[in-house]
Design a protein around this nucleic acid. Structure first.
Lengths: 245, 245
DNA sequence: CCTCTCGATGAATCCATCT
DNA sequence: AAGATGGATTCATCGAGAG
């Protein structure tokens, strides 16, 4: 019901059974940041996404060095495999920053999904920007596997969320998403549905799926994060089983 | 200082002097709505965008029947002419709905602007959507004419806004934007700067520019809306000149 | 003047039916 | 067979008007 498979998404996804998932929740490496090859390749993900003065010692993550054409080609394949593993009527939710919205939309549709909308995630704490507008939001692109099954899930969901990034002891990954945000997004899957997460990272989506009563299958490339994800999933289960006082 | 020129943007823009504007604020017809040609083209903008049982008799607007390729080609030309009329370091702000973000980004960059960001506008009033996420936001794409001039305008602006659509007596156009939102956006232009608005509509951007102490040049195709825009601009000036009590 | 209720409505989307 | 037409749906928000 709650598993994290260690391996590359493009290798693991083809081993999954057709039509078994109700929601694909993907938080891929954005491959963004910087318009030039130098910007993309010269620094580690750590230098790229973390303020210079933030000393948290989190590990780098892989797969963040594609140009935009490569990103579209790669993500299209991932999402096409996800479509195959998804039930008709299922949803896909793919995270993106502002710069990659067009590329992510292309990849979503190239993968066979019907593009349904954009959901901004507002981050209350963000870096100010002199001379213009701050990048205060990231985005979730929503797609569906053909017509939406309103019978299975008739929920009316908000089109916008505000949530703070995890900090301090709860922070396990450089680009970790808030569990509250993921819980809200997961409600687009029917109750008891199955969630597929091809880029599990530190497993926040699994914790969220567990809290919302959905099953979870995560895929994570690095041993380091796969272990963190499994530990967090185990703990979230245990916490749930503790008696109320 | 506050003028509304009646005519087609593609005809009027070439008559403007090079390098005179500090901000291009464009709210083009989105040419969006629906997956099919029918959804996009067959109905009037009133049928397309206004609630079935709404009673207001606001006039239709023109130029909302292009397919996506046509939209990109057309908007690119508009924005290229705007770039010529803009000062180096100037900003462009272009409204879009979620579906046209990729096309609008293409047109902005094809017109020679440097894409700088996406600013969501959250609408507290929006239609719910069964089986998924509501379309609760529209978007403003931000571009610049080369490097940003931080000396002329060092402001740090929010990257996200929430504002209700005008209702009742204040409503003049089907797709009218809130003056408060436009005032906030206009602050990206330096104090006393010149704002160019190639799709003036009912002139809300002019009212906002006046309130923020920027000059305004609007272009509007239809006589109907050009007259409304001029009247609203005159009234906003008069209101400002009334003595305080 | 404040509080409350009531009713209108939204840059939508879907689907059955007709041309 | 593809395109056009028309009607039904949805609820948080906000203005108007009453108390």
């Amino acid at each position: 019901m709650y598993e994290v498979i260690e391996g590359d998404a493009l290798t693991v996804l083809p081993t999954l059974t057709d039509g078994t998932f109700d929601l694909v929740l993907a938080d891929p490496p954005y491959n963004s940041g910087g318009r030039t090859t130098t910007d993309r390749t010269s620094t580690s993900t750590h230098d790229k996404y973390v303020s210079h003065d933030a000393r948290h010692g989190l590990a780098d993550f892989a797969g963040d060095n594609r140009d935009q054409r490569g990103y579209i080609a790669w993500l299209s394949q991932i999402l096409a495999e996800c479509l195959r593993a998804a039930r008709p009527g299922a949803s896909a939710l793919v995270f993106s920053d502002w710069r990659q919205i067009p590329a992510t939309s292309d990849a979503l549709q190239a993968g066979g999904w019907l593009w349904r909308g954009v959901i901004p995630w507002h981050k209350p704490i963000h870096r100010p920007r002199r001379g213009g507008f701050a990048a205060a939001c990231e985005y979730v692109l929503w797609g569906s596997h053909g017509p939406i099954d309103i019978i299975r899930n008739p929920a009316c969901l908000p089109g916008w969320y505000s949530a703070s990034q995890p900090r301090g002891r709860d922070r396990h990954h450089i680009t970790q998403k808030p569990v509250d945000l993921l819980r809200a997004l997961i409600r687009v899957a029917p109750a008891g549905g199955a969630v597929l997460d091809p880029f599990a990272g530190s497993g926040s989506a699994g914790v969220a799926a567990r809290a919302e009563g959905r099953t979870y299958t995560g895929i994570e490339l690095t041993t380091h994060y796969a272990e963190i994800a499994r530990r967090r999933l185990d703990q979230s289960v245990r916490e749930d089983h503790q008696p109320c006082e």
